[in-house]
Design a protein around this nucleic acid. Sequence first.
DNA 1: TCAATCCGTATC
DNA 2: ATACGGATTGAC
Length: 677
Amino acid sequence: MTSKSARGERVPAQRLPVARVCVDVPLAHLDRPFDYLVSEDLDEVAQPGVRVKVRFAGQLVSGFLLERAESSPHGGKLAYLDKVVSGERVLDPEVARLARAIADRYAGNLCDVLRLAVPPRHARVEGQAVAADSPEPEPEPGSDADTSTGSDAGPGEMRAPAVGGWDSYAAGPAFLKALEEGRGARAVWGALPGEDWALRIAEAAAATARGGRGTVIVVADARDLERVDKALVEVLGEGRHVALNAALGPAERYRRFLRAGRHQVAVVAGTRAAMWAPVAELGLVVIWDDGDDLHAEPRAPYPHAREVLLTRARLADCSAMVAGHARTGEAQLLLETGWAKEISAARNVLRARAPGVAPTGDDPQLARDPGAATARLPSIAWETARKALQAGAPVLVQVPRRGYLPSVACAECRTPARCPHCSGPLALAGSRDVPSCRWCGRVSAAYTCPACGERRLRASVVGARRTAEELGRAFPGVTVRTSGRDEILGTIPQAPSVVVATPGAEPHAEGGFGAVLLLDTWALLTRSDLRAAEETMRRWFNASALAKPGSQGGRVVVVADGSLATVQALIRWEPGWFAARELAERRELSFPPAARMASLTGKPEAIAEMLAAARLPDGAELLGPVPADDDQERMLVRTSRSQAAAMAHALHEAAAVRSARKAALPVRTEVDPLTIF
DNA sequence: TCAATCCGTATC
DNA sequence: ATACGGATTGAC
């Protein structure tokens, strides 16, 4: 598909001879379309959305054809498109508009966003897969790529409309009705503890599909995706959706992307990258557990899945659902501005479903039982776990993620340092010299080794496995397993066993956990992080949601003081109350999401240059600098939400001035940075 | 006065 | 990266 004829004479296409192209050059001052001539022989294939090759500044670069036009505003001569890479229209017009809006919001380049939005081409897959109206081919013999749902199944029948579980929520049935009728509905859904949330989301997608429209579902990790994938098969039948997993190989990823782009499926579910998936007649976007860090894209311009999906819903004028057991400040803001409506269960339904929650409080009394001496657990926690195990139920223990905090031991005799109050492991929080307890959070300023009297401490790593061993001794005869980064458990049976898990790696228990012990107070301790309390809350709600209802004996013990707002919110199961409180506090402090922040990271002179070039909106504040890694520093720019677009625009322009000057030192610009100090 | 060279800028 | 235009320099 090259535009050169034998002797190089090219004739422009008769109709719409101009192609507007986004070139793949990540320089801010080149972040605009460039016009090329379409030769007659490429006229047919040079459609909006195809990948092209063009000569740009003497080099052959790739790009996307954005649109065809009758003429160009460009004064000089236009070059011809060199080549159309393939006729596959991989950049959906709806996604192209979204990508531009996201580039603008995040002060980034369109081509960077398109790199995130469109997976790399895999020519063989393009050839294999067939057009929407042809029957599916058999998977190649010997190919193991087609193991998961949606890639090779034929169209299945949709299950009869079932509202079912949505009846538990006051506004639930009305929301599904709106989806089915194609009326725009925007919701923040607080899922009940024990809720089969994946099934509810699948039902929402099915309602949208009955109205003839498509759905995009984004979850944080592969395990959540697996649940959604199963639920979609259950509700929609086989072959109506694709699951886009970050772990897929390039061929399979592209194959599934093409199925979506060719409109062979009604629903796309996946991790982060699926937020860009092309879907015909988009009717609904869903994000589950929007507070999870994994929803933040680590590549420039660092867009967040929630913001991308909400922007997508605005541009496509479709429904949106921000969902989770916990509620983020951002979700709360959607409610308070009236953009979205709340979907929550009535108090009596909640009471029937929620586990009983108890804090260990200020009573660090250790159990008197012989086992407890080695258990090193507060007595309430130990008792609760023991009862659950006796009743034949599994117990979940949530412990801090390994690696964040080095535990400490005596510098002399290496005896692990224990909290004098609760005997939890002591750890060094941040750069502080004062150790604090991983379980109860108390600071132990004057620690003395009980074995040898030494006062100095040394760092020593104690991971989840060690915690598991200790717990094993506390509950003799019970299987203790760990679930963490390296080995994540999926589902465990209803039987007496203990699972020690790090946040986000908790398995799902059939019939629910009899007891959940929350020892993870790490996030609470790091006061420097703006989102510390919100993150603690999220981890606690997510783990507690895995417990049985209180009426069936489900208990949660949180190793913390009952007077803390986070603990109160958990006891009363009021994610909304906590989020409102949190948002009010951030308003007070002018912190996100009440205000918009951007961070600039780089060498001091580079940042100074950037700020000198930036025509920031009135009222923009500069905060910092704070030191960053290797001789770099970080400046924060803060504006009101109404000035956010102007700030992003100013930062992008400033970056353009610098890139046009070929500034040597890079500055990393992040709008809505994940951490602000 | 003209060519060779340098530098900055745009890149369709 | 490379190509181009305008300015600068140096030789006739």
